[in-house]
Amino acid sequence: MPAREVSRIKLYDTEIELIKGGTGRPLIVFHGEWGNPGWLSWLDGLASEFEIHLPTHPGFGHSGRHRGLETIHDLVDFYLDFLDHFRFERPALIGFSLGGWLAAELAATCPERIGKLVLAAAAGLHVEGSPIADIFLATRPELGALSFYDPKSVGELGRFCPENPTEEENIASERSQIMAQVLAWKPFMHNPKLPYRLHRIRTPTLIVWGRNDATIPLAHGEAWAKGIAGAQLKVIDRCGHAPHIERPAEFSSMVTDFLKSSRG
């Protein structure tokens, strides 16, 4: 298991939690609406070539948040500060679900600063006829079914939703859901103006989707691939909304191949 450190960094008025591991070129991972699951096995194979940064977004988990942080655009501004702070040289950026939306917005804001982009089961678009499931209304068992093709086969399920959470874990996950609701209640999980900004993403982009994603249907993956010039879409069979957790080996090698390829 590669060495990693957990730290807190303060950028202006916001102090967030940051997990760091691996050595090499910079890679930033944006977690989704349920908060930062920490270091998962799919990252192991990347740690020898990348210095991987796993920030917990403001307001999520144990990260702070000032009152002005209320929209995805506010988070984009925060991550512009984040990029400035670390002086990253065109880092790779991977985002999951709501984090994928955030990654796409950031890449559209400053395309020259992002080396490569991976959007996994990304929220952010509205696709007529393929609504995003109402995750904020779902019960715990329903969430399992919405998130995975086969919850029982998921090895790291406990990291995603611990069976007997501590009070501290409960508070952190409730904070995450509250922040996700602040960001994405209405319009629900998308930005109606984003399609008009997608042309700005000139970063080489990989779109990864679980074929059986019941939270954000595959039609969204196709819409991203169509909207971002040159983007390639890879679909994983027998896989739901969290390919990095449900199919870690497949997902990891897909991402590794893309990040190591000469494009970009």
């Binding site: 904020f136 209304l137 019960t139 508070i171 409730e174 859901q177 509250i178 609701q181």
Partner: peptide, 17 residues
């Protein structure tokens, strides 16, 4: 109906929810 219909996350403090 589900508990969210009556006590959704974020509507009240944790002590209540």
């Amino acid at each position: 109906g589900p508990v969210q219909h009556y006590a959704p996350v974020g509507m009240s403090s944790r002590s209540v929810s």
